[in-house]
Amino acid sequence: MTGDESLRRLRVVLVDDHALFRAGARAELGRQFEMVGEAGTVAEAVAAIHRSLPDVVLLDVHMPDGGGVQVLRSCTDVLGTTRFLALSVSDAAEDVVGAIRAGARGYVTKTIAANELADAVTRVAAGDAVFSPRLAGFVLDAFGTSAGDVAAHEDELDRLSAREQEVMRLIARGHTYREVAGELFISIKTVESHVSAVLRKLQLSSRAELTRWAAARRLL
């Protein structure tokens, strides 16, 4: 699937209520991607996304009138083709995990370097998940890190496998996917599939502790 898409420039919509940030991101990302829309409110965002059907939406999770989660809830019909990458300055786990559980494919902080942001957009467009160190930390915190928290079966939704824990831990330590792959002597593709599996668990898990953890931080 890469052959065709790498030739075509990815179409990106930018959703953020700060015009200043949009201007900066547009300048940075415009060199590499086709910026097909911008929005500063939830309503504008929903309209822009349905109008232009972009490959990737860069979505600020923290906005007035409902924020990124609200946008995601109004765009469930396009989730199959349009990928959402959550962006935030917020340290609040509630916003971030809320956006992931509503369908975002990744989360990065706004302090991310421009080239890394571009990488993240490309990765999300290719269907992979993007985990920043902070999101990996949230995941470890929510799913637990003790020996009893390790999943026995690969398809268990409520616990991370030992390998997934290792991958999350390395990402939380600030390693890139490439460095994680080198550290664990596995391919980048394998790292990506582990991360996607964790994302799926984060979205679908009904783990009681996740719920409790989330409730303690006022989310879901």
Binding site: L140, T145, R169, A172, G174
Partner: peptide, 19 residues
């Protein structure tokens, strides 16, 4: 930079990384 700190507290103890 960038400098990252990771600190994990579990029942095994504390593990911290500075990168």
């Amino acid at each position: 930079p960038p400098i990252d700190v990771y600190l994990e507290v579990s029942e095994r103890g504390i593990e911290a990384y500075v990168r």
